[in-house]
């Protein structure tokens, strides 16, 4: 009687741990260490996902004491949703700031991969990624929402082109805060105290409702053809905003840029980029709080140190 009762109980537990009733596959620390989350997953880290579908963290994943492997959750197929369920992927990485606002070194420095690594059309949402060798890295066409990414030894959040990023706060990482490989849409973003650029757009795309403060590189950096609006960029190491060819920059505040490079401008714009409704004040060092303009267009309604912008 007792053994039958126990067997029923055990079976119920195993079933509940593996799959939620809605078909979502659950991942937790115990399952990660045991292996078998997927057909290709072996004991220990990384948790390897090789089947498309929806996955849910049901506990924090903690991987302390080693930078190897960099990856804690490795998603080897496209079209996977990973809901962190309010939990986190945590390591014990420690970074030093060395008297700057941003980290200068970490116990573990990341490679190009993140603690969460995914391919095309990956969704990652609702949780935290902190203290790892790297943060989150996903492929083209991905969606990243409601994440707190901090204190990792590499780029905080790297996404492929055609990705959407919203409601993320990315701070204190040893690399860029948010890095997009092409055309992305970023909205409701905080990128503070990262070692390189706060936001780096390698292609066109849109950045809206963003705060970029005290990053070691530029606050917001776009290669060209981007739209940057409704932003604040304060006390970054280099430029407040770099607007590549054809970028439009509007409705933002840029202040106290050039902490690390005192020749940096508040706004550096080139190749027909336009700017409108931008307020630039109080740079550090020799360069005035202004626009460094190589073929860019003042669209009007801008102020540089309380005067007209060039």
């Amino acid at each position: 009687m007792r053994s039958r009762f126990g067997a029923v109980l055990a079976a119920a537990f195993v079933g509940a741990a593996a799959h939620a009733g809605d078909g979502v596959i659950e991942i937790n620390q115990t399952k990660a260490l045991a292996g078998g989350v997927n057909t290709c997953d072996t004991p220990g880290f990384p948790v390897t996902i090789c089947d498309k579908g929806s996955y849910l963290l049901t506990s924090d994943l903690v991987r302390n004491g080693s930078a190897v492997p960099d990856i804690v959750v490795s998603i080897g197929v496209p079209d996977v949703t990973l809901d962190l369920g309010g939990h986190g992927v945590f390591g014990d990485n420690v970074c030093q700031t060395g008297g700057t606002f941003w980290p200068m070194s970490c116990a573990y420095s990341g490679t190009a991969w993140g603690a969460i690594y995914g391919l095309q059309r990956t969704t990652v949402r609702n949780g935290r990624v902190a203290g790892n060798a790297g943060g989150v890295s996903v492929g083209d066409g991905s969606t990243v929402r409601d994440l707190i990414v901090s204190g990792n030894g590499g780029t905080g959040l790297a996404v492929g082109t055609r990705s959407i990023v919203s409601r993320v706060t990315v701070t204190g990482n040893l690399g860029h805060g948010v890095f997009c490989w092409g055309a992305c849409a970023l909205e409701e973003v905080v990128v503070n105290n990262n070692q390189a650029n706060g936001i780096e757009l390698l292609g066109p795309g849109s950045v809206r409702r963003a705060t970029a403060s005290r990053n070691g590189g530029a606050g917001i950096h776009s290669a060209g053809g981007a739209q940057i609006s409704h932003f604040s960029s304060l006390s970054n190491g280099h430029q407040g905003v770099v607007a590549g060819d054809g970028t439009v920059v509007s409705f933002g505040s840029i202040r106290d840029s050039g902490w690390a490079d005192q020749t940096a401008c508040g706004l550096e714009a080139s190749g027909g980029a336009g700017y409108h409704g931008v307020v630039i004040t109080s740079n550090w060092g020799t360069n005035p709080a202004t626009v460094c303009n190589t073929g860019a267009v003042n669209l009007g309604g801008n102020a540089c140190q309380a005067g007209a912008c060039p």
Partner: peptide
């Protein structure tokens, strides 16, 4: 004893949803 175990399990289930929350 079995009943006590079942109660304990139920209590644990009440504390933790199946999604670990």
């Amino acid at each position: 004893a079995a009943r006590a175990l079942a109660v304990a399990v139920l209590a644990a289930t009440a504390a933790h949803a199946t999604d670990g929350v």
